[in-house]
Amino acid sequence: MPSRPEDPVLVSSRREAVVVFLIWLAACLYTVGFSYAFGYGRDPATLRFILGMPDWVFGGIFVPWTVCTVLSYIVARYVIADDDLGEDMPEESLGSAASSRREARDD
């Protein structure tokens, strides 16, 4: 076990990544599932049009796309936490060692 508690940004990012992954999974299962069930190998005579789209495109793609756009707002607004990303290190250890050496030389 780590001696210190986990970094709060790590904790929130991981939680958000899980939520995002689940949304991806749900979108994938629904969109591909619905489209396959109602859009593949079907009798074209039964096709209806909704908003000008074949019904399976409306139900299988347009609807989830709209839902995902709304979800994007909800996730961005309420799920993802604002965190302090921390101070920017001037440069990496190697670089800073080099620059401090350089400063010493300049002195």
Partner: peptide, 19 residues
């Protein structure tokens, strides 16, 4: 359907590893 996953690209693109 080929392009449909762009519906989740905004959340996956920034939400999985962005922060």
């Amino acid at each position: 359907l080929w392009i449909a996953s762009y519906m989740v690209v905004p959340i996956t693109g920034f939400g999985l590893i962005g922060k």
